[in-house]
């Protein structure tokens, strides 16, 4: 059971994680965080393979990954 957790308040909405996700489950959320960015999130966690690509490209250590 893989799980990615987004620390949404740290997210700057740069979208790099979206482009590197091999299973295309990372999306930008519609809501805003306190700093005014749309934070990234996951659409379908069941598809996550815990590859941590999103976490590795994230410039803001928003993402942690468990398996």
């Amino acid at each position: 059971m893989a799980k990615v957790t987004f620390n949404e308040e740290r997210c700057k909405g740069c979208e790099l994680c979206i482009h590197v996700c091999p299973v295309k489950i990372v999306i930008m959320q519609k809501k805003f965080n306190k700093r005014g960015f749309n934070p990234a999130g996951v659409s379908d966690m069941s598809k996550c393979i815990a590859c941590a690509a999103c976490a590795r490209i994230c410039p803001d250590v928003v993402i942690s990954v468990d398996k």
Partner: peptide, 17 residues
């Protein structure tokens, strides 16, 4: 569950500018 990826301890909590 095991941690696959987490924020390194040697970074402070402060969001970067």
């Amino acid at each position: 569950m095991v941690k696959v990826f987490d924020c390194p301890k040697s970074l402070t909590d402060m969001p970067t500018h």
